[in-house]
Design a binder for these strands. Structure first.
Lengths: 142, 142
DNA sequence: TGACAAACGATAATGGTTATCGTTTAATAA
DNA sequence: TTATTAAACGATAACCATTATCGTTTGTCA
């Protein structure tokens, strides 16, 4: 991977932003230093950074809305391969224990634990138990 | 809110699916019972259900990719109003303690705690400290 | 039953993201 | 250093998820 000027500036833009920016946010900031940059270049390089592990996405579930009818508090087990979501009852996880202050004035509504990993079928164990298919390619390297 | 036949079938489709379906998934399933239903109707009613609290969305961050450069394990404080994301160091939360089995064959990669609520500015406390603006309307009733 | 608002289906428009394509730039070897 | 070649760039079209619009149908209620 060639470390071009565009890449440096894009990467620094994410580093400097303490706010988990969107590609669009990055684009706007980078244009301050490279006015001719294309939004496509930002997307391409963000994808490259994700693939090589230089950056991470905050949520595995951008791309499409996922719904739930279970309104009781509970947690989620998420497969980073197929994006499958399994529920975990609230009692299956010991209460989360905060050891520091939150941002000033923040009012907690709820606490949700996400256990992220690979499900059996994505690890190649057992039959290919098809989940609901969703989401764009995410795990494929070019 | 009138409880039309379409609404009943859509809601049951989400209830029956143990898999956190997308609107598209729901559309496909509902078409089995109401072949003439429109995808737009599914979206409209899903939105209605979200607004009235009958359904919930799994992630507050579908819609647009959010990036992070902090590759050390950490947790997130998320404002459900403006979708702002604050980081919490791993040491700020006591280790998550699992009290049950996960789905057979699931390999844990990491555990992430999400503390969801309203930030100071979304509660109307303090100056309107603008965060990076992102995401479509989500909190607004029609 | 009639009147009116709400919901529906069809479809156009929007917004985020990816793909394409011709040109420019970077890496490598001569 | 220059020539070669693949990778990266910018511009733009295409794509997919979602929302908006609009004319018609269906519920609700007087």
């Amino acid at each position: 991977m060639a470390f071009t000027f565009q890449r440096q500036v894009i990467y620094e833009a994410v580093l400097d932003s303490r706010q988990h920016p969107t590609p669009e946010n990055i684009y706007e900031q980078v244009r301050g230093r490279i006015p001719s940059i294309s939004l496509g270049t930002v997307y391409k390089n963000v994808k490259t950074f994700l693939d090589t592990g230089l950056l991470k996405e905050v949520s595995l579930h951008h791309g499409s809305l996922r719904l739930e009818a279970n309104m009781t508090p509970h947690h989620h087990v998420v497969c980073s391969g197929c994006k499958a979501i399994f529920d975990l009852e609230e009692s299956d996880v010991a209460p989360v224990e905060l050891k520091s202050r939150l941002p000033k004035g923040f009012a907690i509504a709820r606490c949700s634990v996400e256990i992220i990993g690979l499900c059996a079928s994505c690890r190649g164990i057992g039959a290919s138990n098809k989940k609901i298919s969703t989401h764009h390619s995410s795990g494929a390297r070019k």
